[in-house]
Nucleic acid binder design. Sequence first.
DNA 1: CAACTCCATCAAATTTACTGATAACCTAAA
DNA 2: TTTAGGTTATCAGTAAATTTGATGGAGTTG
Lengths: 298, 298
Amino acid sequence: MRLDIEALRVLDVVIQEGSFAKAANRLHKAQSAISYQIKKLEDQLDVTIFDRSSYRAELTPKGKALWIEGKRLLEQAARIEKLADHYSEGWEPNFDLVIDASLPMEPVMKAMKVLVDREIPTKIQVKVEAMRGVQKRFEQDQAHMMLVKDYQPVPHLKAVPLPQITFVLVAAREHALASLGNINLNHLLEHVELTIHDSSETSTDRLDEHQFGGDRVFYMHGFMSKKAGLMMGLGFGWMPDFLIAGELAAGTLVELDYEGGSRSSFMPLLVYPTDQPLGKAGELILNQLLTEFSAFAE
Amino acid sequence: MRLDIEALRVLDVVIQEGSFAKAANRLHKAQSAISYQIKKLEDQLDVTIFDRSSYRAELTPKGKALWIEGKRLLEQAARIEKLADHYSEGWEPNFDLVIDASLPMEPVMKAMKVLVDREIPTKIQVKVEAMRGVQKRFEQDQAHMMLVKDYQPVPHLKAVPLPQITFVLVAAREHALASLGNINLNHLLEHVELTIHDSSETSTDRLDEHQFGGDRVFYMHGFMSKKAGLMMGLGFGWMPDFLIAGELAAGTLVELDYEGGSRSSFMPLLVYPTDQPLGKAGELILNQLLTEFSAFAE
DNA sequence: CAACTCCATCAAATTTACTGATAACCTAAA
DNA sequence: TTTAGGTTATCAGTAAATTTGATGGAGTTG
């Protein structure tokens, strides 16, 4: 017979209440049941937990030390029960989200921050992949959701469209490229490209499709600082159209006459399996991503 | 019926062994007992832990998450049982040692370091007090041992003598006090006193009996640095005789002709109650203090 | 296809936990 | 001092839990 939780629970109540009898009352048990549990605990651990030589049973130093450790065990037990309750309420144990690296990360990060701040029981994991890697990772890891630009339709997958985003290739009015016509790739490579730093990019071996591959690339920390860099004439780069509509109209930023096309539109898709309904975390993530991407596209 | 440890233990073994049957074998139980425990756990937590739709029972994601939390609980249970075992082997849950602040702390600290390095299960607490406070604290806190210069004999207390220590009031040969005769307190107060920093001295309101109370006191971090300070002529101060025997003989340090007496001898005593035998930690501390104080007195 | 291994289920046996009653003891108030 | 009220231990009987051993359906292996 080994240590059991119930005995520790009884010990805790006895100490809190100050006597076996009061503990029995609080636990809706007979007083003899309390005596039995305490005695059992003492036998199991081979430790005298209460000194019965005086009127009231007094906690021994060893008993106190074991009680303190016992409370930790009770806390852990409560944690487990609470976790199970959360599952019953519809929370998933974990949620894997795969994201295409070429999508703007700002709304994703904002959505994640909201989730983290809520301290939900679900363990969320975000994996950023590029190109074909997105869907591959989604399938390999049996992820719960992916956020992509495009995907191979598969049965049992549902796609929710997010607001369309159009990127425009621009530079400042004063920039050398702004007044150039019929720009080709070689022209671009002679200038500094501004792009957004992706914190998930550990190595430098990955370029997203919106990057030209010149040897002078400046990494900015968000579209706002990228825009500031562009305005300063630091370089050229892709920007979401709605973020620079005013500057394009005013002429402070100029759409480049690039032969490869100066506009790139796409509609991000939130894809997830239909065979299992989304849990609470899934719903939250879905809604939060919709919210943040809508806010991003103004 | 609530969560119990045994079910988590069974869950852990089932997952380790990979099947209910193998777990039953390892636990020397019937296979149906394993089924029963797992089913009970699932009912208690209202969570499907194993997916039985295929041949082998497969752990669900929720089951895995609960298993991980469950292992923590098992670890805590093991910790409690181990603690109880230690008690049975004669370790005390805690040990309070009260020390007279006027004794050299170096051997005490060395002894404590040895104890800490052994990672014994007993929680040792050292309290440094001065003058009458030592015995008072010892009695008030029902401490297990005190290290004193002197004490009021009380029945049920046993005293073990440590090697006698003699302190000598000295200064360097070049120091102004060295050549002075019939030194009184006012003479001393005109010079810098070197004393040893006691890390337990939180406020400055306490002076030990070996300190003259001048307004220029230098605190050193051990007898070796104090000796170095004395040799340099930085000031005067008390030193254990055996640490400066050579210098006194050579004349580089000079015993001061102080009217209050230039020598102070005492025999530290290790005092502890006899009504309860010392536990393992008590024995260790006793021996270690004997060792360190003997080594200190060379 | 035969021999295995997997797990669920059931009744019976066994072990554990609890109840209610009683006794021995202590405390505090009358 | 007596009395009323509170403490815990113990015991026999009972209720509840766990375990066993047997059985069966289903998947796997060679």
